[in-house]
Amino acid sequence: MSRTPWLLVAAPMALLLVFFVVPNALLLSTSFLKSEAQTLTGELTLENYGFLFSKPIYQWAFARTFIVGASVGLLCVLLGYPLAYFLVRTKSRWKGVLIALSLAPLLASVVVRTYGWYIILNRFGVANDLLLNMGLIHERIAFMPSTGAIIIGLAHALLPYTVLTIMGSLNGINPNLEQAAMSLGASRTRTFFHVVLPLSLPGIAGGFILAFSIAISAYATPAILGGPATQVMATAIYGFMTQLLDWSIGAALAVVLIVSSVLLLYAASRIGAKQAAI
């Protein structure tokens, strides 16, 4: 067997080994080290995991992370699919401009976009002013910090990725299949649900997985719209690593996040693959 393919992958593999495998191995080993008064000791322990799983605050951070991930993924698919469908099927001469416009949010930093939501959602923000002026509420509501605010902010930030993924899938569907279904008497709705939607499932699964995986590891949006009292795992890890300087618990939390997200993503991709095969 020729050695050329191995030589070609040697450089990226070495890069992955040095900058991914080794740091993750260090993270894993740190998660089993005992920490005393913020200092790592050489003693092996399971206490860090015990601490995390015994405290409701971190159980909530764990649950909130995956609730946020799933909600953002779902919201992005529900909002992104009609947009992607329209952008793929429109015959407008402005099609290019419309695609560019729908992806325009990517031009602004996620922090800037999140602060836009901050201005809208805070207790003295635009949403409260509007509802008060319309007489729909009589007292200001704290829309944030909250899990809902994090979901809204992340869904807005990640929507373009889902649109792009679904567009790719819809573009790959042969238009003759739809025409064939309709020529055999299927209505537009029936054609959509029985031909287009099943064929675009890989795009839907890809868009969901992409939004989900970015959302569960997001830091900036949860930190701004959730604040220090509405933690997700990324903000909790940051807190342990750089604010409380307790690396063993921070590492344990990171390991829990990595392992659980890999397992969930694997499960989601298997389901997506099965659906696509059907």
Binding site: A37, Q38, P56, I57, W60, A229, T230, Q231, L244, D246
Partner: peptide
């Protein structure tokens, strides 16, 4: 500050439990 450093994690946890 030695005491603060040693107990800050527990205080933060307590603070989070109350403020969450």
């Amino acid at each position: 500050s030695d005491v603060i450093g040693a107990r800050r994690k527990d205080w933060t946890l307590k603070w989070q439990e109350i403020m969450a």
